[in-house]
Every structure is written in structure tokens, then in C-alpha cells.
Design a protein around this nucleic acid. Sequence first.
DNA 1: AAAACGGGGGC
DNA 2: GCCCCAGTTTT
Length: 215
Amino acid sequence: MNIDIFMEKLGQCYKQWDSPVITLIAKRKSDPFLILVSTIISLRTKDEVTIKASQRLYEKIKTPHDAVQSGHEAIAKMIYPAGFYPTKAKRIVEISRILLEKYDGKVPSDMNDLLALPGVGRKTANLVLIEAFGKAAICVDTHVHRISNRTGYVKTDSPDATEMALRKKLPLKYWKMYNEILVAFGQKLCRPVSPWCSKCPVSEMCRKKGVIKSR
DNA sequence: AAAACGGGGGC
DNA sequence: GCCCCAGTTTT
């Protein structure tokens, strides 16, 4: 698979796939704390729910100090019915406390510092590095993992392995856009089951074409 | 390696 | 009704 042609073709379709959560995050580009919080809320949660939950939270919570003062029970109510909302609420408060204690109330821009925060894994940390700090990073969620393997661009058995493979193989100029485009692509067409292969702009490059049930 | 965490939406 | 979903932590 030629990655340049792949990115070119997907990029042309990107506008119509525009992901609401990425748009939401983009609007908060100037505020790493709100980006981090909305990313936490988005985990294993549908876009529409994430957006409403984030907007309710943003009305009251704008800083780590707000979050600590508000407490996890109040935050849980604000972000309901986002998935795992009680756990996420506790982690938002706990993270806020750590930010105040160790980082002067600011979100760190270092990968290892981010990973040390409770509830922050590689996916979240990479997305924050990209969206909040404009750093070159590769964020692999299940969409990116699935599609990278369907195209045969990498052959891995876990999102973390996919990230490491992409770090070696993917040209640096694509690092920031790869996640956004593939997530949108994964939601609209290249879904886990019944991918919409008849509408896919890159189906001729797909090693799974004809192997998985499509429409 | 597998379960647990929570609820909405697709089929 | 059953299964899946923009993960991470715990057992």
C-alpha cells in the first residue's frame, strides 16, 4: 500500500467525515486542561454523548482548582451519561489535584508525565500532545489500529504495537493527521463490522477486501 | 490474559 | 434482547 496515495485519497474525503469530537477539541486548543478533560470523557463513549457531557462540564469547570472544589460527585452528575462516568469523575478530580500539587496547575507536555496521571494511557496522552501542544505524536485507538491492519500497512496485534510500528514506518508529515483522518474514516465507512466498502475511496488497497462482510 | 467499569444506540 | 463502542486499570 502506498501511504501517500492513501493519505491523499482519504484527505479529500475528510471534510465530509469531520468528527464532532475533534472539532470540539480543536475549539479548546488554547486550553490543555479542557482538552485533557474532554479526552478523558470521550473514552469508550459516543461522540454525541461526549459533546453534551463536555459542554455541561465546561459551564462550571474551567480549571483544576474548579474541579477539586466541585468534587467528583458533582462532576459525575455533569458528565452523565458518558461511559464510566463515576470513575471518570473521580479521575478528573484526582488528576486536577496532582496538577495543582506537582505541575503548578498546568497540564504537563511530557509523555511520561502524562502517562503517570491516573486514567491516562497512551491513547489519551498522545492525543493531548497533538491537540494541546501541537507536538508530533501518533495516537492509536481501536479505529487506527483496525484500519492500519486492514490496509496491511502494519501487521500488529495490539494498539500499542501499532503505535510503535507506525512510529518507525509512517512519514513524520502524516503523524498529526493520521489519527484524525482514520478515526473519521473508521466511524463513517471502515467500521469494525459491515464496513461500507462500496463507498470506500481506498478499497483497492485493502487486504481485507472480499474477506470481511461488507456492504 | 481477562475482567471490570456504565450506558446508549444499532440491529 | 443482545452486541458493540474514540480505553485504562485491576485482578
